[in-house]
Design a protein around this nucleic acid. Structure first.
Length: 271
DNA sequence: CAAAGGTCCTGCTCGC
DNA sequence: TGCGAGCAGGACCTTT
């Protein structure tokens, strides 16, 4: 479920409840996630104060004085803040309880998510230190994609989804931003013009920025049992719309698998 | 049976 | 020949 806007929305939803709070208990219900959860975490984090929460790409980072916890939601993860003692649901794998009576709970049916403890500065962690710039930061400018893509033969769609180039463009927003920029997702990244990359860069910033704004309006969902993310569904132009008319030219939207991922585009408007 | 919003890892190919 | 870079595909898992 999580694209970057949802991860950001999750961060904004949970932070007010647990920021600066002290951990009373950690419970690992099922440590078999993408990587095994460190079994000593309950001992390490007991009575530690959560000093800061932040996001880098799709990783959420919880900072303590002894180190940092890197959380990733994978394909199907959700994080919620509940009152301690609420009934455990199926696929609730990890839980951090706080002295204020709140509990942060990770639910993830597919278990592609992760909970990783590191004592080094989180910026230098192996999974973080090679990440590209944040899409909404000034470090992500129209030159970045163009410069990095020279001589690359991968499809532009795969290229923008590569977190080492730029973080936060997932499968939905890759299709959406390429549509707005008028670029065929199959085109070799190295053959996309500077002008097209400029349009793509703008599209990514606008689309992700808007999605975060929308997400912000659904913050209340995060404390409800069945908070439903669907906030973006009505404004997607092409994703999931195979056969429906292109919003610009009315030709049916094409769906094709590119590097194992469903891709949606208009063969007329995207060249 | 296919597909679902992620991404790391492995192994192959290619060019210096 | 050896090595790194780039790339495709596999892997992880459950639910619909």
């Amino acid at each position: 479920m999580p694209e970057l806007p949802e991860v950001e929305t999750t961060l904004r939803g949970i932070a007010p409840h647990i920021d600066q709070q002290t951990v009373s208990k950690i419970i690992i219900h099922n440590g078999s996630l993408r990587w095994p959860v460190d079994k000593t975490l309950p001992r390490i984090l007991k009575n530690q104060q959560l000093l800061k929460l932040q996001r880098r790409g799709k990783y959420l980072i919880l900072c303590f004085s002894k180190g940092s916890l890197l959380l990733h939601l994978g394909m199907s993860g959700t994080l919620r803040v509940l009152n301690a003692g609420e009934t455990l649901q199926k696929h609730d794998h990890f839980e951090m309880c706080f002295n204020n009576g709140k509990a942060l709970r990770l639910r993830d049916p597919r278990r592609f998510g992760s909970v990783l403890w590191t004592t080094e500065p989180w910026e230098t962690h192996k999974l973080i230190n090679k990440l590209g710039p944040e899409p909404l930061s000034d470090d992500f400018d129209e030159n970045r994609l163009y410069t990095k893509s020279r001589k690359k033969t991968v499809a532009i769609k795969s290229f923008v989804m590569n977190s080492h180039i730029i973080v936060g463009v997932g499968n939905i927003y890759a299709s959406e931003s390429l549509f707005i920029a008028g670029i065929n997702p199959n085109k070799a990244a190295g053959k996309v013009s500077k002008k097209a990359y400029s349009a793509l860069t703008q599209a990514i910033k606008i689309i992700l920025g808007n999605a975060i704004k929308q997400g912000g309006t659904t913050l209340k969902d995060f404390s409800s049992p069945d908070g439903n993310p669907g906030y973006f569904a009505q404004q997607l132009n092409v994703y999931g719309r195979k056969g429906e008319p292109c919003p610009k030219c009315k030709k049916p939207i094409t769906q094709k698998v590119i590097n194992q991922r469903a891709t949606y585009y208009c063969t007329v408007c995207q060249r």
